[in-house]
Design a protein around this nucleic acid. Structure first.
Lengths: 344, 344
DNA sequence: TTGTATGCGTTATCAA
DNA sequence: TTGATAACGCATACAA
């Protein structure tokens, strides 16, 4: 089962010219007669010639491939980011190699290894929850590899980030709840080693303070996995006194978990308890009551990060003279889960 | 910004041996002294040597990369399939190049082109909604390219498929609705050029017949886009007489659309109208009432398809002697949207 | 046990 | 206007 792709040599042999002539004719080099160009192109078509990208890569020491490292494809947010990445990469003539870490550091490292072996031209990275040490990234940066981080970004000097404004997203969400008259607002927080979690907590806290409310540490609870939020919420409803009257989730799964727990405990939403999520997953408008959420522009994050990466690769911009953080705005989408008819 | 990767030559120069010796030592060839092996490996580590996969590809005419062509990453089902693909490919030492067609035929073809240029070892394909002619695939098959189709599969002789049992999935869903006492069951069908849609329609129809009910063509309505189902359902509720008392969606988005339309029209679910979806998206258990759905094993589909493809590539199996269809079972997950308390 | 030469497909350099 | 040659990094047939 030899998959015979025809090569420049085949064309050359058919036409009794040298392979360099063929190569030049195919690329419309000056100094090749029109007659030859015509013949070569005709034969190329006839033989169904396709340039061998592998050979080209070897020759040019460039693979025209970028590597994407993300935690999990099945997260709606990441899949929209991938769409953005794919779109731009495709348009600019690059391939995308994808690996997911499943939130494992070991996997993250080995992915980098295989990608390096494959001579990829640059990395697009959102690191795993397990990653707390960034040595494997900073050493790459030191060697000059182009890397753009998105969403989950490390604290390395000189690293380029594309992120959303988590702080203001959380601030707006919390402010909205306050303005709706909720006053005992719980924040179901994300893993504290992620900067995005920290920023969301900060936005939550500052909104409270700006409206003259106290930050109660008992009201900030870390909810690591998807299923956990529900249990945590049930527990809080039973133990906290006074009972919380709002939940702001670090992500939509957490918010939905809280919503289910509240419903199960007999609370009416949004009358008695208000809920806001983060990410604006597809299902937000499909649940009952529909879930208010902070929309993150996943597609745009992917597209922007890729544009920057390719600019770096093609040396259209230089890492040192580049502003190292691009911040995209979030948008609070207010739905039913957080809009009170009668306020307290 | 030269990214100096060290090569076999570098190791050879350092140690004053030939590069072939280094090559052999690194792969533990017999006939190389242990002493040399030791030295070479030591130096390789010291120079942080990493084999150049591109050079290897050129040499072996094998890229150890497979190409995946899917409609859209953001569909939950496809993203679980990707996970399965990724998992197996990674474990067996292959890279995954991904492109989405966004349901466009032109994109599908150009993706194939770039992948061929990149000398990928095989294809994993679920084709676009626009694809009705399969010439671009069958010509590849004729040339001996390994291809495994999944989910959306073409009717080409000899093509290998990994699919779920759409027929029995739809049959079970419909049967379930019937047994719950629903009798005017609408099927929100998928694009009729897709075999999966046809199979689901067939399952729906046969279940009706097996229970002595008539198939009413007005009750089978094609719902192409996600938003459409809601409008269609509203329309049907207003125009069909007698009014339908159940909706079986070709996918979960359609089912949710139907659910929202029913609620908006004042119907109680599941009392008055029962609803079942297809795919078991994450949100099924999060909406209210929770949505019964036919679960498709996306991860297993991806994993299985990849295993077969790699077996083909590595010639562990031969296309001709291979059963050309692997069918994975679906599972009906009964939730609240279709379980009547009092039956008619 | 090790080295030399060749080729995978392409293009840049130099020569004609 | 075209051709010969070398090189990208690696593996292997053949020679020593």
């Amino acid at each position: 089962m030899k998959l015979e792709q025809s090569t420049i040599k085949d064309i050359a042999r058919e036409l009794n010219v040298s392979s360099s002539t063929v190569s030049r004719a195919l690329k419309d080099y000056p100094g090749i007669s029109d007659e030859t160009k015509r013949k070569v192109k005709e034969m190329a078509k006839k033989l169904n010639y396709r340039p061998n990208a592998i050979a080209l890569s070897l020759r040019k020491s460039r693979s025209f491939t970028i590597g994407v490292i993300i935690p999990e494809v099945v997260h709606f947010f990441f899949s929209t980011v991938i769409s953005g990445i794919e779109e731009v990469a495709f348009a600019r003539g690059y391939n995308v190699i994808l690996t997911q870490t499943n939130e494992k550091l070991a996997r993250e490292k080995s992915s980098i290894d295989t990608m390096l072996s494959n001579q990829i031209d640059g990395f697009l990275v959102s690191f795993s929850k397990e990653t707390t040490d960034f040595e494997h990234f900073s050493s790459l940066l030191d060697k000059g590899y182009p890397i753009v981080f998105f969403d989950r970004v490390p604290d390395i000097p000189g690293a380029i980030h594309v992120i959303v404004d988590d702080y203001s997203g959380a601030y707006e969400a919390t402010k909205h709840l306050i303005l709706q008259g909720y006053s005992r607002i719980v924040h179901l927080a994300g893993p504290s080693n992620l900067k995005i979690s920290q920023e969301r907590i900060r936005g939550y806290e500052n909104a409270l303070r700006d409206f003259g409310m106290e930050v109660n540490p008992d009201y900030i609870v870390e909810s690591r996995t998807d299923g956990e939020a529900q249990k945590i919420t049930s527990h809080l409803l039973n133990t906290l006194s006074p009972v919380p009257d709002a939940f702001f989730g670090n992500n939509d799964m957490a918010a939905v978990g809280a919503m289910m727990a509240c419903k199960a405990a007999g609370y009416r939403i949004p009358d008695q308890i208000g809920i806001v999520g983060f990410s604006n997953w597809q299902f937000c408008s499909m649940i009952d009551p529909s879930l208010s959420s902070v929309a993150q522009p996943g597609f745009r994050i992917g597209a922007k990060a890729t544009d920057i990466l390719l600019d770096l690769i093609e040396q259209k911009i230089n890492r040192n003279e580049f502003e190292n953080s691009v911040v995209l705005e979030t948008e609070l989408l207010v739905r039913k889960s957080s809009v009170r008819l009668e306020k307290n």
